[in-house]
Design a protein around this nucleic acid. Structure first.
Lengths: 251, 251
DNA sequence: GAGACAGTTGAAGCCTATTCAATTTCATCG
DNA sequence: CGATGAAATTGAATAGGCTTCAACTGTCTC
C-alpha cells in the first residue's frame, strides 16, 4: 500500500518515454505507457545482468518500482515479459540498422555497416537474444509469433541490400537470398560469441571484429579486398574511425 | 519403494552401456554406470520433446525408473543434468564426425561431410544445443567449463581439415582459422534453424540443405563448382545418395 | 551371519511464478 | 466541488517444482 503517487523514477530510459515534455498534464494513458516502458527497461536490465533464470519477477518489480502483481497487468507471465523485451530490442535494432544503411552508398559499405552494427548491438545486450530459444518450446508456435514477424522485418534490411546489390552487379552468383542470409547472420551471432570469449582473455580486439566482418562481407560481394575502389576504402575507414571515437568518448 | 533390482529398461541407448554382454554378473559399478546412462538418456528424451523449462525432475525420474532423489546422487542439480546431456551429445558428435571425416579423401568432401553431419545431428536433437545459453549465466564461467572444452574438441575436427587443406593448397587466403570456423558453424546453426522453420511449411527439402552446404563449403575452398574434379563430384554424389538411402530405410 | 557402507527413496522445506480480493487513483459528470 | 465507477495497483495467499535429508535397502567383506 501507500508508495505515493507512483514516482516512476526509472521510467526515463531513453526509448519512448519523455515524448511530452509537460510534467503535470499526463493523461492516464500516457502514464500507463510510460510505466510499461519502465517495466520493460527494468526487465531488460535484470535479464542482461542476471540471465533469464537468474532474475525473479520480484527483482523486476522492485527495479521498476511497482508491486509484483502489477507486472501481470502489463504482461501475461514471465515468458511474455521476456518476449516484450526481445520485441523492444528488435524494434530498436531494425530502426537503427535501416537508418545506418540508408546513410551508406555502396553495397559493400552497407553490408559492412550492417555487420558491425549487428555485432555491436548483440554483444552489448548479449543475453537478450539468447533468451529466445528458452522461450520457444516448439518451432511451430514460434513460426506464428510476433517475434518471428519482427525477426523477419529485421533481416529484411539485409535482404534488400542483397537484392539491390545483385541488381547493380555488385553481388555475383545466383544463390538464394536465404542462403546468404543464413551465412551472414549465423556467422555474426556465432562470431560475436567467439569474440566475447576471446575478449575475456585478451581484451576487446577491434582487429578481430574487422577480420571477421571483412572476410564475411568479402564472401558475399565478390570483389577481393585489393579490388575495392578508393572511395569505398575511405568510406569504410571513416565508419571505423567514427565507431572508435564514439567508444572513446563513452569512457 | 521396491522397483526391484533396477531393471534399467531405458538404459540401452547406444552410447556407452552394454559393454559387458554378460547378463547376470553385473558388478555394482557397472550397474551404477548403466543407471547413469539411463538417467542421461531419459533426460535427453524429455528435454528434446518438452524443452528445458517444460521438463520437471519428476518427469525425468519417472522416465528413468528411479526416485526423484536418486537424480541428485548422479547430478548436482537440474542444470548439471542438462550439462551432462550436452556433454554426452558432444562426445557422440565429435566421435562420429571424426570417423566420417577420416573416411573422406579431399578437403572438399571432408568439409561437405562435416557440414551435412553437423546439420543433421543438430536438427535431429535440436533443443539439446539450444539449452546451452540458458545454462551459461556468465561467459566467464563457461570459459572454464567442461562444456567449453568439449566444444573446442569438437570444432578441432574442422580446424584440422582447414589446416591440412591449406597446407596442400586446397584452401586459399590467409584468414585466421577462427574466422572460418565462426562462419562455418555459425552459418550451419542458423541455417539449421531456418531449414526447420521452412520444413514446417514445405516439408524437408534436401535441396535446401544442399544449396546451403554447397555455398558455404564453396566459400571456404576457393574453387568454384565448375572447377571441381570429376572424382570429387562422384564422391559427393555418393555421400548424398547414401544419406538419402539411410533416411528411406529408416521409415 | 554381522557389520559397514554405497546407493536409493520419497516426503518435507523452500523458493518463486501467479492469482485475486481489497484498495487506491483519477477522469468524468451532476 | 464532491460523487461515481472504471481502471490500475497492491501484496498476501496459493501452487508447483527444485532440492534436501533422515531413514531404508541391497551388497560386499570378513
Amino acid at each position: 500500500m501507500a508508495s505515493g503517487p507512483a514516482e516512476t523514477t526509472q521510467a526515463a530510459t531513453d526509448s519512448d518515454a519523455l515524448s511530452s515534455p509537460s510534467p503535470t498534464p499526463q493523461t492516464r494513458q500516457t502514464r500507463v505507457r510510460r510505466r510499461e516502458g519502465a517495466i520493460i527497461s527494468a526487465a531488460r536490465n535484470m535479464f542482461v545482468t542476471h540471465g533469464y533464470a537468474g532474475t525473479t519477477m520480484a527483482m523486476i518489480a522492485r527495479e521498476a518500482g511497482v508491486a509484483d502483481g502489477t507486472l501481470y497487468t502489463y504482461f501475461e507471465n514471465k515468458d511474455a515479459l521476456a518476449r516484450g523485451v526481445i520485441s523492444d530490442f528488435y524494434k530498436r535494432l531494425t530502426e537503427s540498422s535501416q537508418k545506418g544503411v540508408d546513410g551508406r552508398r555502396t553495397t559493400r559499405t552497407k553490408l559492412d555497416f550492417l555487420a558491425r552494427h549487428h555485432l555491436g548491438q548483440v554483444m552489448d545486450e548479449r543475453g537478450i537474444i539468447e533468451m529466445l530459444p528458452a522461450l520457444t518450446t516448439s518451432l511451430s508456435d514460434y513460426a506464428g509469433s510476433e517475434l518471428y514477424r519482427l525477426n523477419k522485418t529485421y533481416v529484411a534490411v539485409f535482404d534488400r541490400i542483397v537484392r539491390e546489390g545483385r541488381a547493380c552487379g555488385d553481388i555475383p552468383g545466383d544463390a538464394d537470398v536465404s542462403v546468404l542470409r543464413d551465412i551472414f547472420y549465423g556467422a555474426l551471432d556465432y562470431g560475436g560469441k567467439s569474440l566475447m570469449m576471446r575478449s575475456l582473455r585478451d581484451g576487446v580486439r577491434k582487429a578481430d571484429m574487422t577480420r571477421l566482418v571483412d572476410r564475411l562481407v568479402g564472401m558475399i560481394v565478390g570483389t577481393s579486398s585489393s579490388a575495392r575502389s578508393v572511395a569505398d576504402r575511405l568510406e569504410l575507414a571513416a565508419d571505423r574511425l567514427e565507431a572508435s571515437l564514439k567508444q572513446v568518448e563513452n569512457k
